[in-house]
Design a protein around this nucleic acid. Structure first.
Lengths: 117, 117
DNA sequence: GTATTGCATCGACAGACGTAACTGTTATTG
DNA sequence: CAATAACAGTTACGTCTGTCGATGCAATAC
């Protein structure tokens, strides 16, 4: 998990010399970082962040028709944002008759949350 | 902070009727969401997320020249990513002679972290 | 059956993003 | 002084994103 880079004191290197040792970055974090960046990216829009906020606070399934009036965007745009959240694995939906109900996938944010703490 | 939406049971409304009550969304969260989305968006790239990771782990100031070999991108591109992180208020830099040292601003991630928990 | 409702998808558009090559500025070396 | 190194800024370009209007489609109401 830890990287332990060499942080040697700097001084201008002679012509042709390398500035820094080519520190090897352990690949451990790479997949981890990719996954967390995907989640962060999905949360990187105020509307999507508020959507997740609303869904989390209800801790249940919320009908899309109730989400639409909360934001000043068209229904197709909201659908688009919900799809982004679905693709990122943050929420999922269930259809029941005419209505679609969305909910936050438990622990979907856990990895990112743990890293941030 | 809490939203307390009405979650009335659904049934198809009669022609011309509204589907859902136009639930009023308290504006409390709006600035908060905007700020957090900005941070999340900045973290929404694997390279930037790993940059923050490295900077946090060192808990000190890291020279750009040491960051370059860690990633398979050119130095200008790395500089570009660092600027994004700076613009989002996540990191800051200090120049000392030829070198620029970057560090994570303490508590810059706190707001998002708290919301995620 | 037909009409209507809830929601997803499509097509289109402007703007933002990630990347690289080039240029510029500042500082250090010789 | 000249040469070089470290880094930031500019420009350019292809791709992705956020938005809307129009359309499609399944389920319900009449």
């Amino acid at each position: 998990m830890s990287v332990d880079l060499e942080l040697a004191p700097k001084q201008k290197r002679a012509a042709g010399e390398r500035c820094c040792e080519p520190v090897v970055y352990p690949d451990v974090e790479r997949d981890h970082a990719l996954r967390m960046a995907e989640v962060a990216k999905a949360l990187g829009d105020p509307i999507r962040l508020q959507l997740v906020d609303v869904l989390r606070k209800h801790a249940g399934k919320v009908c899309v028709c109730e989400l639409v009036p909360l934001f000043d965007i068209s229904q197709p745009t909201l659908s688009h944002h919900l799809k982004k959240l679905r693709d990122a694995g943050i929420v999922d939906s269930e259809r029941s008759g005419l209505w679609a109900y969305y909910y936050v996938i438990p622990d979907a944010l856990h990895e990112l949350s743990a890293w941030l703490s």
